[in-house]
């Protein structure tokens, strides 16, 4: 619970400054482009289970938080990448559902 308020949420709110904040140059925090206009935010050894948390983010006119997941293996990563590729295309097409705006 504390990690959400103290680490994860503040990190995500940095997207308001994208790409200005220095963290977006840190490969351990922010991936280079993995699909068209798509990036990954990363947390290492986080939560009670000490998991590798990933959050896929599509950058269009706004930043869209698409899917978060616990990274397990390369096969899962490939599947998540294919899903993310589809989500970015849907966003470009204007076919998506939002669930709130992060402030």
């Amino acid at each position: 619970m504390d990690e959400y308020w103290e680490i994860i949420r503040p990190d995500v709110v940095l997207l308001k400054k994208y790409p200005g904040d220095i963290n977006f140059s840190n490969g351990k925090f922010w991936s280079p482009t993995i699909v068209n206009n798509g990036y990954k935010m990363k947390w290492h050894q986080i939560g009670n289970g000490k998991v590798q948390l990933r959050l896929t983010v599509a950058i269009s006119r706004d930043a869209f938080l698409c899917e978060s997941y616990d990274k397990k293996d390369e096969k899962q990563e490939k599947r998540k990448l294919a899903k993310f590729k589809t989500y970015t295309q849907l966003i470009r097409n204007g076919q998506y559902t939002t669930r709130g705006i992060l402030i």
């Binding site: 849907l90 939002t98 709130g100 705006i101």
Partner: peptide, 14 residues
């Protein structure tokens, strides 16, 4: 299912 969506929509914030 996701790809069948037409246009944009909003659902409640959690």
């Amino acid at each position: 299912i996701d790809c069948k969506q037409i246009g944009t929509s909003e659902l409640p914030y959690v």
